[in-house]
Design a protein around this nucleic acid. Structure first.
Length: 425
RNA sequence: GGAGAGUUGGCCGAGCGGCUGAAGGCGCUCCCCUGCUAAGGGAGUAUGGGUGUUAAAAGCUCAUCGAGGGUUCAAAUCCCUCACUCUCCGCCA
């Protein structure tokens, strides 16, 4: 949620800034709503004040045995007027809320202006794509051996966009998640959390998934939502709280499944386990002092990079342009890992600074040391990393001519010391 | 799933229709006194919104006693619905 104050004082600038993101704010409509809101609110409050004042005097007059009828008459007229005024105010406020809840965050000035993913800018690369002297296979082909990666069974169980992993594949998958978590808690200063996978509407709204993106989420019969990312429960842990400045920064990590409808992505990434309704992710979330959020974004991106580096997977870092950023983000770095079979880099992590956008929705504040007014915190989230896609990257980058796969050194302790996997059984 | 009890400020806890944004205590902040491992006295101490302002502040004002609705001139206090917590029973990894 944007700062209503900003919308009031600097509307033209905000509209311009939103336009760069591809969002058209109806300036005239907003101006008018704002004008009406102001006059109606003032009127309502004045009536409210009058009523309270008279009501109190009724109490006093009564206790002194005076005749209160004239006062009663006066106040009942006010009551009717007040009801009307209140009703109108509610309506206007609801209208304004529906605009503001659908309005994305403003992009940071350092974010490149652009229309779509074609305008994203590469920031740096790490590692050299390996040269293979044999014909390489993609993860689907590699996974077919021993039925380690079994899309057909998954489809029979659940439908398209699900994957079944068996044997060493399942083990590698688990090893990756464990490894990532351990890195973050041991080397990067995060605390591990185990969180609910079903959350309520308020929680989804707090981090910005609702109301705009209802169609992306799975909802249960009793109106809970399957989390699309651990960002949702983790970030909302500070909803409605006033933290002490000394508690900042808060660094949290969790390994969870993520559930996404993937509505509107028909025909995209249909082969293999790139885009699934259910996938695992290790997520990082930081709650920080507003002064430090951009520094924290760089650090968090580094934490995600550290995983790829430890796995020796080549990747590049890109900064998303204004048109490609997510709803709540003010700046986002994507990490793209090298997939030899696709001969390209594919997204494996996304790290965003949401500034006070989520915090305002959630009412997440802190009290500064000097004990003045409370301030909104800044929130950040990043994948560290998407487990399924990391599995794909490992398979494809570590494959050998015979279809077996070398186990990255850092994962070997998690694989019972195994150095080679996916051999014919 | 059934039965009952509860939900008040940072915490504990009173209030059960008007003078209560809320007694009292604890905690915290500041000041004074005393001086030694402690104590005493005084003052202050919720959050959010609006208005105001060049910006801010003061001031004025509204809302909030789990949430939402209702009754009433007036609700923390009465009524209804829901959520959550606790206890007992049932079921269960």
């Amino acid at each position: 949620m944007l700062d209503p104050q900003l919308l009031r004082n600097d509307l033209e600038q905000v509209a311009k800034s939103l336009a760069v993101r591809g969002y058209q704010l109806n300036v005239d409509e907003w101006k008018q709503l704002e004008r009406r809101r102001k006059s109606v609110q003032i009127e309502t409050e004045e009536l409210q004040n009058k009523r309270t004042t008279i009501s109190k005097s009724i109490g006093r007059a009564k206790s002194e045995g005076e005749n209160v009828q004239p006062l009663l008459d006066e106040v009942s007229a006010i009551g009717l007027q007040l009801d009307e005024s209140k009703e109108l105010l509610k309506k206007i406020q609801a209208e304004m809320e529906s605009v503001i809840l659908y309005t994305p965050n403003l992009a940071h000035e350092s974010v490149p202006v652009g229309k779509d993913e074609g305008d994203n800018i590469e920031v740096r690369r790490w590692g050299q794509p390996k040269q293979f002297d044999f014909e390489i296979k993609d993860h689907v082909t590699l996974g077919e051996r021993n039925r380690g990666l079994d899309a057909e069974s998954a489809a029979n169980l659940s439908g398209s966009r699900f994957t079944l992993l068996t044997g060493e594949m399942a083990q590698l998958h688990r090893a990756l998640a464990q490894f990532m978590l351990n890195q973050h808690i041991q080397n990067h200063g995060y605390k591990e959390y185990y969180v609910p996978y079903l959350v309520n509407v308020e929680t989804m709204r707090g981090s910005g998934q609702l109301p705009k993106f209802v169609d992306d989420a799975f909802i249960t019969e009793d109106e809970r939502y399957l989390i699309p990312t651990a960002e949702v429960p983790l970030t909302n842990l500070v909803a409605d709280t006033i933290l002490d400045e000394s508690e900042l920064p808060i660094k949290m990590t969790a390994h969870t499944p993520c559930f996404r409808r993937e509505a509107g992505s028909y025909g995209k990434d249909t082969r293999g386990m790139i885009r699934q309704h259910q996938f695992e992710k290790v997520e990082m979330v930081q709650i920080v002092h507003p002064k430090h959020s951009f520094q924290a974004l760089d650090e968090m991106t580094g934490h995600a990079e550290a995983i790829l580096q430890a796995l020796e997977l080549p990747y590049r870092v890109i900064v998303l342009c204004t048109g490609d950023m997510g709803f709540s983000a003010t700046k986002t770095y994507d990490l793209e890992v090298w997939l030899p079979a696709q001969n390209t880099y594919r997204e494996i992590s996304s790290c965003s600074n949401c500034t006070d956008f989520q915090a305002r929705r959630m009412k997440a504040r802190f009290r500064p040391f000097d004990n003045q007014k409370t301030q909104l915190v800044h929130t950040l989230n990043g994948s560290g990393l998407a487990v399924g896609r990391t599995l794909i990257a490992v398979l494809e980058n570590y494959q050998q001519k015979d279809g077996s796969v070398l186990v990255p050194q850092v994962l070997q302790p998690y694989m019972a010391g195994k150095t080679v996997m996916n051999q014919l059984s």
